Amino acid sequence: MITPGEYLDLLDARLPGLVVGAHVYGSRVLDDVVAGSDLDIVIELSSAASLPSVDGADVAVVLAGSLEKPVSDVTPLAGEITPVLWQQLRTVGHTVRGARPTCPGTAADVEAYCRANLVDYWQRLFDKVRTMPELPPEDILWIGLGPARLWHTIRTGEIVSKSRAGELAAARWPDLPLPDLVAVRRGGDVPLTSSHLKAAVELFDRILADVTT
């Protein structure tokens, strides 16, 4: 599991003097690092350049100064940027190089993005998942916990980890076996079966109903 320092050392060796900002977000700042967790990081460059691909690093690249603008005004050099990312950076993100960014945005921006993502990405995905009798455990975790994060953010404005989102959804809908998903994400030895896949589908339907009523 690569550390921010190791990653920056690699970039500095390949692109000396170009990396002027580095900001960590995701599982490393949301207290949810598990086996296989990537390093989620935003890199600011003083001029456009291509970064080397590094296993275990999920990177968004922007020009210096971009993080002082609304996300809608920024075109990344690489990776994806969203209002949710901007909110993480301005609230819980950890700056390891450069100045802490302001990442201007509003709660309405974040909510609108989450609602659109539920429909444009997740609902289309679940339309396909409904026809599948089984999925690998890692895919069940992905579809079981991902929408729960959006659900919580839409309701409260808070951005939480996948594990925490699973806990919150389990408290809201205790009849579903969601604690099993959280346990497996955290390394527990719980077999995930077709019943968990069905529960993930049911959870998505309940989330969609909950945020559209």
Rank of each mutant, 00 (worst) to 15 (best):
V19L: 03
D120A: 15
T213Y: 08
I41N: 03
G98I: 06
L67K: 13
P191M: 00
T75Y: 04
E44R: 00
F126K: 03
V184I: 06
V110G: 05
C114I: 01
R185C: 03
R172S: 15
V61D: 02
D55N: 09
L176V: 09
T91C: 08
L39C: 09
A107I: 12
L203M: 08
V74D: 04
A209R: 12
G187F: 06
F126W: 06
S53K: 13
V201F: 05
L141N: 00
I143M: 01
S72P: 07
V62S: 04
L30N: 13
S47T: 10
S194F: 04
W86G: 02
S37H: 05
L85Y: 10
V20E: 13
P70W: 02
A199G: 01
Y113P: 10
V74N: 08
V201K: 01
T106S: 13
L118P: 02
A116D: 11
Y25H: 15
V34T: 07
E167I: 03
V59I: 04
A35P: 06
S37P: 07
L63T: 05
L203C: 06
P4F: 11
R172N: 13
L51A: 03
T3S: 11
I43S: 10
V54N: 08
T213E: 13
A78T: 06
D205S: 13
L118R: 01
V96C: 04
A64H: 05
A78M: 07
R14C: 12
D189W: 05
V54P: 10
D38M: 05
D210M: 08
A209M: 09
